[in-house]
Amino acid sequence: MTTMKLLEVEELTKSFGGVTAIAGLSFDVPPGNVYSVIGPNGAGKTTLFNMLSGIYQPDEGAIRFQSNDIVGIQPHQVAALGVSRTFQNLQMFFNMSVLDNVMVGCHLRTRTGLLSAALRLPGVKREERESREWARQALAMCSLDRYIGHEAGSLPYGVLKRLEIARALAVQPKLLLMDEPAAGLNDTETMEMQALIRRICEAGITVLLVEHNMGLVMQVSDRILVLDYGSRLAEGTPTEIQKDRKVVEAYLGGEVKYAM
């Protein structure tokens, strides 16, 4: 390998019935970056995420994560390789406390099986303590310390968005897929989210971001991929994307103007 790649996507194709959601898409995500995928609604962004996380299987093409082919394996196996994600429509465990939600994220870092748990064998207590500590750290990173004793179901939307990220961080992923983390957030919360994404990247976790808030995308991204009808329209740094004629015409409607 001459260039470092964390994630390689090659000629990826997925159709639902007669509709092609992703058509022959190829791109590489270098490690340590915030890599954003943008495009109008229906461009295939969430479909792409679902294939990257093993929820959908592609019709054609290859996905390699750290040179491991991840096509055809289950989501929990993808997670075990070091890929975690958040969801566009929250997928919280609303039947659990904030701490327990994030402790589920420590599943792959612990070993306790059903039998040793049932009999409360000596190692279990130590692992519980470790998980609790890891979960606290993930919560602290997302500035959620104060909600630690709450039930997930009692929290407002903006907090839940961050809780989902904390849970994904507890997995200690190498790659974090974030599906519209700023959707539905107010301006203050969006600023906080932007800072959080940068913090995650600085902690050495590569971020693959799908987001509609262009201000946030332009500020936070190292590289951007623009999707249109399931294929690549453009790819480059935020400055390059902002100057790209095709992007301006197709996606931004002919007028280059970004809100901060």
């Binding site: 989501p75 997928q91 589920v104 420590c106 306790t112 009999l119 279990v124 519980e128 994904a168 997995v171």
Partner: peptide, 25 residues
């Protein structure tokens, strides 16, 4: 004992959201 352990959390997670439970490994 089970409920209050890694396995128990996996059970409750499954109840809360199957797809998210899978993504947690």
């Amino acid at each position: 004992n089970i409920i209050d352990s890694r396995s128990g959390r996996a059970l409750r997670a499954l109840h809360g959201s199957e797809v998210a439970a899978e993504m947690m490994g």
